[in-house]
């Protein structure tokens, strides 16, 4: 026996295959046409230009208007925050930023807090009523904001809630319901039922099952819904423009619009404007870098099905 094993021919040298670094099978990357290579180059160009634009905008925010206009490609001489300080103090971006942060935070939180139980119910109980309710919520997805603009203004005016951030928050919550309920319903449906059944077997009430079992399981989906609302409320313009009139209640987009419009009278202050743009864009960049995975996942979860 031992001799036999010894006489066994050495294993053939392993076939040398090129390392498959991309993780795709070789059959899938068979062709290398010219059109494809051009496409790849163009795509990287798009990426470079996008990043370049962002960096360029950031850099210009540190230069004064005359320098920007004489040489738009120039580098800032120093990183002093004079534009930011001026935008922050003189142009009321400070109040607007606080308003935007508070409005976005409060309305996004409340939207998700109200939509999550509703979505849970609609995803777990199957009856003709829940079917109709789901349709009722989805209906809102197709109604553009300008339709409800004027009636909302009239209604809130009656209730003395125009020109009030409280009113704006209420509106944001109501308007965000369809999408959030829709997204979270899809998300709750994708969760396994077994844990909830086990909790029910252990005698937990339906409410307790929801709070202690489902909510922790759904943390990812709920965070996604929250971040999507943060993005949309931070950028919302039309409703805020209609419902808010006094400067001290402006949200950032409205402050930016009024800043742009002042310039037609007072001459262009591009330095300040770039600083203003950065104040609008940077929080989104931070959110994206921090929670971007949730964002893209959430969008594809909501849209793909």
């Amino acid at each position: 026996m031992t001799t036999l094993t010894k006489q066994k021919p050495p294993a053939p040298a392993p076939l040398r295959r090129p390392a498959n670094r991309r993780g795709t099978s070789p059959a899938m990357r068979a062709e290398h046409s010219i059109a494809r290579s051009i496409g790849v180059v163009l795509l990287w160009a798009v990426v470079a230009i996008s990043i370049g634009m962002l960096v360029w905008m950031l850099l210009q925010a540190f230069r004064d208007t005359r320098a920007i206009l004489s040489n738009p490609w120039g580098m800032p001489e120093s990183f002093d925050m004079v534009n930011f300080v001026r935008a922050w103090t003189a142009s009321d971006f400070a109040t607007a930023t606080v308003n935007s942060v508070v409005t976005t935070g409060v309305s996004s939180f409340l939207t998700v807090a109200l939509a999550a139980p509703a979505a849970y119910y609609l995803s777990r109980v199957e009856s003709r009523l829940t079917g109709a309710l789901s349709m009722y919520f989805i209906l809102g997805l197709g109604i553009p904001a300008q339709v409800i603009l004027i009636p909302l203004f009239v209604m809130l005016n009656e209730a003395h809630l125009t020109d009030s951030l409280f009113g704006l928050n209420l509106v944001y919550i109501g308007v965000s319901m369809p999408f959030t309920v829709f997204l979270l319903t899809a998300f709750f449906r994708s969760l396994p039922l077994e844990m909830e059944e086990a909790a029910a077997l252990d005698g937990a009430s339906a409410l307790r099952t929801f709070v202690q079992i489902t909510l922790p399981l759904a943390k990812g989906g709920i965070l996604t819904a929250f971040v999507l609302q943060v993005v949309s409320h931070w950028n919302e313009t039309l409703l805020a423009l209609t419902l808010i009139q006094s400067t001290e209640k402006y949200t950032l987009p409205i402050a930016l619009i009024s800043f742009v419009q002042q310039q037609t009278y007072s001459g262009a202050d591009w330095g300040g404007l770039f600083a203003g743009l950065c104040i609008v864009v940077l929080p989104m960049l931070i959110v994206y870098v921090w929670l971007g995975r949730h964002l893209t996942e959430g969008l594809t979860l909501g849209m793909g099905k």
Binding site: L114, L152, G174
Partner: peptide, 13 residues
């Protein structure tokens, strides 16, 4: 959710 949505979206529509 129903109340907010109805009062601030459907009724205005």
């Amino acid at each position: 959710a129903f109340i907010f949505y109805t009062a601030l979206f459907i009724i205005p529509a």
